[in-house]
């Protein structure tokens, strides 16, 4: 999966990120881990790719990490902020 083209992301300070869905005019925000995931999703990634990257950078166990990533990705997809691509 990767970013939807109709989404604008912008950093807020050191940690946070805001995203604007150009289609709906809605803003979303996320914290430092979400911001890192967003950066990673500039190029298409799989869930295991994301888990590996996040576990390497943040102090979190793999099972929790994957569960959180799945939740985050589901949320982004539900709001049309990212889309899946053919492998």
């Amino acid at each position: 999966m990767h970013h939807n083209d109709k989404i604008i992301g912008a950093p807020v300070g050191e940690d946070d990120l805001v995203m604007l869905s150009v289609e709906t005019g809605c803003y979303f925000s996320t914290n430092v881990v979400g911001r890192r995931l967003w950066e990673l999703l500039e190029t298409p990634r799989t869930i295991p790719d994301l888990r590996q990257a996040v576990c390497a950078e943040f102090d979190i166990d793999e099972a929790t990490c994957e569960a959180d990533i799945v939740d985050f990705v589901r949320e982004l997809m539900g709001n049309g902020l990212i889309q899946s691509v053919e492998a």
Partner: peptide, 15 residues
């Protein structure tokens, strides 16, 4: 330009 405006607002809200 929308991405510039979003970045401008976001940059301001950092402070």
């Amino acid at each position: 330009v929308r991405p510039e405006l979003v970045a401008q607002s976001a940059g301001m809200l950092a402070h």
